[in-house]
Amino acid sequence: MVDALETAPRLAHQDLGAQVLQAWLDNAARVFYLSPLSVSVPRPGSAAAPARGGVPVLFPQFADQGVLPKHGLVRTAHWRLLQDTAAQGARQLRYELDMKPQDDANWPHAARLSLQVKSKLDELVFVLRVSNTGDQSFNWTGGLHPYFAVRDVLTSSATGLAGLGVQDRYDTDLRSQPPGDLCWTTQPFERLYEACPPVTLDAGGYSLRLSASGFDQWMVWNPGEAGARALADLPAGDWRRFVCVEPVCVTRPVLLAPGETFEGRLWIQVCRH
């Protein structure tokens, strides 16, 4: 008898950060970029670091917008793997993490995070749940940070964002996304969109249809040629091999009262040209 795991879509993942590192869908298409220089096992005297690529989870702080480490506390935490199963050509993962008030003095709250990942032939679904398990309300920013693999970012494009309000790190005068397709150059790109409509990413040879719920903004990022030089875990030239289209909550932090749960979803569908 053939093992169900052998016939289901493949997923590579690690308990550090509950990070999905790679997914192979639709005739072995690799959905995510993963740097060969990533170091997931800490060197002596250093802390564990998330891999450069795949899908990091960002919580309870997006980027450096606060007093916590960049992108929060959970990327370097070891989550519990509760499920890794396959049936009828589908694969499911589920990780869980409990955060306690004493874990970090700068974020003294109790929360339970759950990340569920479902994959089948041409589709991948991420479900992030955040529950307030304490007796005080808290707010948070963050989301998912997928590194989507592309043949060459300089020939890739995205549709579905035209006309949206934006905050651009490198062009503070820009207020909305210009008409037409979004394209990239050799320059660093970091743009936060004011909404989260469906987006189609032309990855070269196939497209990825991206949609989200719960999350209310897209962040689109690529370090560009100059920015990549500052990333020690990124090989020279590899900045051209990915673009991050991230479903997040940033401008409007999520407020959770005791007992409340947030649920954010990301759907990824592979479409052949």
Rank of each mutant, 00 (worst) to 15 (best):
M99W: 11
K100I: 13
K100P: 11
D103Q: 09
D103G: 10
N106Q: 12
H109S: 06
R112N: 11
L113H: 02
L113C: 05
L115S: 02
L115W: 06
V117N: 01
K120P: 09
L121I: 10
L121Y: 14
E123Q: 15
E123K: 15
F126D: 03
L128T: 04
L128I: 05
V130E: 08
S131Q: 13
N132Q: 06
G134M: 03
D135R: 11
Q136Y: 07
Q136P: 10
N139Q: 15
G142A: 02
G143R: 00
P146A: 01
Y147C: 01
F148S: 02
D152E: 09
T155E: 14
T155I: 13
S156F: 14
T159E: 15
L161I: 03
A162Q: 13
A162D: 07
G163D: 05
G165W: 09
V166K: 09
Q167T: 14
R169S: 15
D171H: 11
D173S: 13
L174C: 08
R175Y: 10
Q177Y: 10
P178W: 04
G180L: 06
D181L: 15
L182K: 06
T185H: 04
T186P: 11
T186F: 08
P188F: 06
R191S: 02
E194N: 12
A195S: 07
C196E: 04
P197Y: 01
P197D: 02
P197R: 01
G205K: 07
Y206F: 10
Y206P: 06
S207D: 15
S207F: 14
L208Y: 05
L208H: 04
L208M: 07
R209P: 14
R209E: 15
L210M: 04
L210G: 01
D216R: 12
Q217G: 02
M219I: 10
M219Q: 06
W221P: 00
G224M: 06
G227C: 05
A228V: 13
R229I: 14
L231D: 09
A232F: 12
A232Y: 12
A232R: 13
L234H: 09
L234E: 11
P235T: 10
A236P: 09
D238V: 07
D238M: 05
W239Y: 14
R241P: 10
C244I: 08
C244D: 03
C244K: 05
V245W: 01
